[in-house]
Design a protein around this nucleic acid. Sequence first.
DNA 1: TTGAAAGCGTTACCAG
DNA 2: CTGGTAACGCTTTCAA
Lengths: 358, 358
Amino acid sequence: MSVEENAPVPQGAPHPPVRRATMRDVAALAGVSIKTVSRVINGVSSVAPPLREKVQQAIDQLEFQPNLAASNLRRTDRRTGQIALLLEDLSNPYSATLTRTIEDVARAHNTLVVAGSVDEDPQREIELARAFTQHRADGLVIVPTTSDQAYLHSEVRVGTPLVFVDRPPRGILADSVLSTNTDGAAQAVRHLVDHAHRRIAYLGDYSSISTAEQRFRGYQEEMGRNGLPIDPRLVRHDLHDIEAAVSAARELLALDDPPTALFTSQNLVTIGALTALRSLGLQHRVAVVGFDDFPLGDLLDPAVTVVAQDVPRIGATAARLLFERIEASDQLPPREHLVPTRFLVRGSGEIPPLDDVR
Amino acid sequence: MSVEENAPVPQGAPHPPVRRATMRDVAALAGVSIKTVSRVINGVSSVAPPLREKVQQAIDQLEFQPNLAASNLRRTDRRTGQIALLLEDLSNPYSATLTRTIEDVARAHNTLVVAGSVDEDPQREIELARAFTQHRADGLVIVPTTSDQAYLHSEVRVGTPLVFVDRPPRGILADSVLSTNTDGAAQAVRHLVDHAHRRIAYLGDYSSISTAEQRFRGYQEEMGRNGLPIDPRLVRHDLHDIEAAVSAARELLALDDPPTALFTSQNLVTIGALTALRSLGLQHRVAVVGFDDFPLGDLLDPAVTVVAQDVPRIGATAARLLFERIEASDQLPPREHLVPTRFLVRGSGEIPPLDDVR
DNA sequence: TTGAAAGCGTTACCAG
DNA sequence: CTGGTAACGCTTTCAA
């Protein structure tokens, strides 16, 4: 039954843990009213220095920590000091970087970040959004997976700030922050054309994803502008993971008339294509330009030429928009923000076409 | 006073947003008491079906969303349904994977995850911990940066579950989940020795970091066990970023009697060393074994042999320990959990030593 | 400058 | 099975 006498303090002591001190406890110990304690904690000026001193001592002695939830319940501004992020997958670099950038802005606004992974599962998106709503997050940043976000109708109605990232909202009007997907893809194709390629393959993610669709459009349009026909055998949609991309790339390269260059519309697809090329010993013979940068893209041999999304800027923009709405009184109409992609020339996109067999 | 009649609903409507419905509103509309609404929402069985039906209709009509903060304030179990993570940096793969794994466990416990980056700044750690505490997170997972966590004393006292990851707690007793750093480092060195290396350099992070210290110990001990002397010129501490590692590696390789193998004790240091080797054209001549895996480590040429931490298992273990304490009534004494590293042979660690000039 | 009372949205307790 | 009343920990309102 004895308590450890020397530090450190053990976790899970045999006794029921001590109750947290409340303002009432502090007030009692300091011999003042609860309201005075509140004033001291909130730094309201109108407290006489000696009183303030006594209260502060009581706070320190009791190791008092105010309960923000209780505080916010009564406060006029009704802010919980938390914003929520609905992400594709917290563990992928895009989501992780986005979260980090938003966190930095949030910190400046004295706000914490709660995040969840949706994993391209619409049901999960709805559940997560509901959970965040019931926790009364001050605002939501959403990388949507659902085809329609009308389920957020009631949140819009009560004025919860919403910012969509990567993919625009459907069924509701809200701010969004998007990359210039079509332009970026067109630039990639143009780069390959400028390097004398004519048989350029497209390897893309699920075509139901709006970004994939836009990137494919950029590919199509740029091919057209250069008078190049699109060989349907060189177009592969719906590649969502490395495995699928490896197989698709291998099949393309096994054609009688294989492509001399690959445009891969997404991170994992690029990695899959590179893996396939490497296994065939073709990594220095077939050109590759990928959409989305990835870690160590510059350490590979050849280094990978990519259309990089400016994720930090996307995150910062989204966070800025969100806090503008959280803190502003007058609400402006929703806007769509475009963040330009950056083209990073690093080697794989500058490989010349293999000599054709004519 | 008119409401938009057609979808989509605009964000930032000119009218002041509608007030959220409360249980009181639902009760009034359904013609029942607030308590009955509460029962319906919490799925308590003892509500007559017809009543339940009426209440449910009112809930749907008003788009009522319960306020969890208010609920938790009154509830006996006092859980907020949120756990907090104090991480090194949300955007690095270790932190991101850890977060994701913990999120998965948390989801099964109907709990959300709020996370923050400490950036190796002790002051930031303390501030973040205080913020999480004031939000009354149900438990904390901490990758500590401070040298002493006595500042968490009051949290331990009131029984907030705490789990330390990657580095053990100091100044308090709490659960921890650690990798087998010393063993893993020793295994790396042994591997190099088995491949006939004798001049093996150590490149490590800040020696103040306990994991770096342990990994260095593993290096020392294994060198000793093999009767190999440690040349102080081949030991470089306090390399915390890629830049520093590049410089250090270049210096080592410029020695009259350079190392034939490098053991790098951390992610960024490994990348720096590889960068230096590549720039010198030595990537196929000098062996490298790194601690910590990194994305695409298997796509480089040569692929990188590493001692990989099992981050998913670390995260799952930490989350499991946390929820055991959150949900258990009887508290066991804190434990230290060791998660074994995995040795991944991929190429860079199997390069034989260059012929010495004797 | 200080404090008493009411209230935030919900659940606990105990009658009916 | 249902509801009234008190209470959670804090801020607001208003009076002293």
